[in-house]
Design a protein around this nucleic acid. Structure first.
Lengths: 239, 239
DNA sequence: CGCCGCATTGACGTTCGTCAAGTCTAGTGG
DNA sequence: CCACTAGACTTGACGAACGTCAATGCGGCG
């Protein structure tokens, strides 16, 4: 009963425009408010879910920062993405009813737990929700195409520049500075995501600092010349 | 009128178990048969759709073989996947109502054109179809995670071995040999997909031949020792 | 204060890309 | 039927980019 004081409602959530479809009427809003079952707090360094766990729900990040990664039995480890407030994780679990990656909080976090069968039920009635779910999954597919481009055809500097620009652009969409950011992940995690070793990440940061493109103090990054970063990303391969 | 002689019906399509949900009753089957608007033939070397084109439909491959690729303005080119009979292409277009990659036939092909608004409409009524669509998109996300692992953490031999095993496994699911396959793509396209240059692809093939793992005659591949390929893929990184 | 994890930097080695030459095959046209 | 050509493929020599290994620095926390 008293638990209801932390009443969960998408309709008055300030992340609504990131998670939820726009243009719902009040009837639809009420239906959508039934989506979120509970909230869940995740301490920094702990997992929201693990590879192999049964899939039941998607998670909308309210606060905090996550990485998703796959670990193979032969000890390989690949970070497949970094997720921040307003983004949805768990889509990988739908196909086989179990998660195929780990989702780990890189800082204390809170997520909305959205049971997937409830999503399917309500999206049969609310067309905008149905389409929204499709768009979210499609967006993830497109994002991963971009990562494949990065991993398959870019050199170290290009990868790191693209990574920084992507992070800062997403942070800006959430009202943060477009020139200041704090990395929530280690050099090793960045390297895993970008397909390079932590030493190469560190060296590339140092080169950017030397070239006056960014300032680095630990995990605090100041982007001094965003245009230079953009030029680095789109450098035509010389030959 | 006469066009109707090539009546399109999923319910008696031999690829049904690949494209469509199982366990439908006859009423649902009838609904699902309304999904496919038309069929379309694509000549080898031509595109099913291009980056930037308006998205209206998904495509189920009936026969033939496709690649999807993204081309950036700075001349980069990344193959994001190879698709064969029974697989669905076009999912990338949902999010922004336009395609974000090119789909090119690598051999003469035929596809079922499935208007996406019809998918959304019918999947509101047929729960199994709704769930099936979600699974297809989730499967694509998981597949791409695998590609990220490959691109981010494997060496050339491991990549090519994983690629061959994946191809042959999918072909086997379609009733083809598990040791013989014909590559529909060039070395350059393989290289683009795997993040390596065509010369490296060629050299790696030659090494596999030298080691007695496969036989190569042009695009015809005979896998002599599938276990050796599996061992190559899962070689723990030595250090 | 000292430890520990993270980060930086240097020296060196390996892998793969680059460039170039040459081969093979399928398709074309005489 | 055969010569010719273009595109795909193979192979070698070389170099650049990045990984590996190791030493050291730095900041936070008990």
């Amino acid at each position: 009963m008293l638990k209801e004081t932390i009443k969960v409602a998408c309709s008055n959530c300030n992340l609504r425009e990131l998670c939820m479809p726009l243009g719902l009427n009040s009837e639809e809003l009420n239906r959508v408010d039934e989506l979120v079952a509970t909230r869940r707090s995740i301490k920094r360094g702990t997992a929201l879910f693990h590879n192999g766990e049964k899939f039941t729900s998607l998670y909308a990040i309210r606060t905090g920062f996550f990485k998703t990664s796959i670990n193979t039995e032969d000890g390989r480890d690949q970070v497949t993405g970094f997720q921040m407030a307003g983004e949805i994780i768990g889509l990988d679990g739908i196909v086989n009813e179990q998660h195929t990656c780990d989702a780990t909080a890189l800082e204390d976090a809170e997520v909305c737990v959205i049971p997937f069968d409830r999503i399917e039920e309500i999206s049969r009635e609310v067309n905008a929700l149905q389409h929204h779910v499709h768009k979210i999954m499609s967006r993830e597919i497109v994002r991963e195409h971009g990562v494949m481009l990065l991993l398959g055809s870019m050199r170290a500097e290009e990868r790191l520049a693209a990574f920084l620009l992507n992070l800062v652009q997403r942070l800006q969409a959430r009202g943060f500075s477009k020139s200041e950011l704090i990395l929530r992940m280690t050099r090793e995690e960045i390297g895993s995501y970008l397909g390079m070793k932590l030493e190469t990440v560190s060296r590339t940061f140092s080169k950017f600092v030397h070239d006056g493109v960014i300032e680095v103090k630990q995990r605090h990054i100041h982007i001094q010349d965003a245009d230079a970063l953009k030029r680095i990303v789109s450098q035509p391969v010389c030959h």
